[in-house]
Design a protein around this nucleic acid. Structure first.
Lengths: 156, 156
DNA sequence: TCTGAAAAATTTTCGTG
DNA sequence: CACGAAAATTTTTCAGA
């Protein structure tokens, strides 16, 4: 990760669909050089993919919520199974496995409050391993999709 | 949003960098038709952008946390100012303004626990409008980057 | 590793159904 | 609206520095 790689990563986070030629021009390098850099970053797993950002309303997901929950017993098996089930549920955008008061936090998006209620009752309340959960409806969500490299001692 | 639009949106969420030609071939339509559809989706605001997904480790962000906090007084001005400040902070990936016990939830990513501690002390503890906060270190994060359109009464 | 130029492939425009 | 062919542009390869 030299300066060139960092710049490429920044530009592709900003606009993943810009042409390799434009990328190269911005960076002041030859298109072939740029292409090889991007390929290397992909090969090394730095670039994991490219995704379109879609307006949730267009996907009929006007209501969002964070659901914090506790699992019992808190074993590896219970966590893994529950996490994987949630990750495969259409309403679930993100699953966070966390330390602290809660064990998991789910980010869910649904068409309306009825469907949120339905999700909570049908997908969560029924499960015996859930010791309790708390739902926070989301009023606003600001997402930063371009992350810079932070400096620090941990990496060269 | 007919079936074709829905399919395009799904494919571009999966891989935003596939060629228009490949997209068209998968959908069984002419490239020019596909291009016009994609442009229309962008014009209508359905497609909001394209972003590379980068390994957090490569950005020196090996430690992640959710920070739940309460603000006082809970006025529009206080919320907006604080939210915008956080959205502009390098460590912050997401800001959720929520209903319920907490007022905001931050998703932060930092190089290490020292930097997390630093963030909490320097960016949060100093602010008078914060009535309290709770930090949950993230052990695992599964993100679903391809969201389907949910069916329901809310839209045709 | 990077470059520049050639070859291959794709994007984009536009006249027509 | 969608198509297909032509024109413009880009991607990709590769030999040389």
């Amino acid at each position: 990760m030299d300066e060139l790689d960092t710049a490429i990563v920044r530009l592709l986070q900003t606009d993943a669909r810009q042409s390799n030629r434009e990328l190269a021009r911005t960076l002041g390098i030859a298109p072939s050089t740029c292409l090889e850099r991007v390929r290397a970053l992909t090969r090394r797993g730095v670039i994991r993919g490219y995704h379109a950002d879609i307006d949730p309303a267009a996907l009929n997901r006007g209501v969002q919520a964070l659901v914090s929950l506790r699992l019992r017993p808190l074993t590896r098996g219970v966590i893994t199974t529950f996490k994987d089930d949630m990750a495969g549920t259409p309403e679930v955008v993100s699953v966070f496995v966390v330390a602290g008061g809660d064990d998991l936090v789910l980010h869910v998006t649904v068409p309306d409050l009825d469907r949120l209620h339905g999700f909570l009752l049908d997908r969560l309340s029924k499960r015996k391993e859930i010791a309790g959960f708390r739902t926070s409806v989301i009023f606003q969500h600001v997402h930063n999709r371009v992350l810079s490299r932070l400096d620090g001692h941990a990496s060269p």
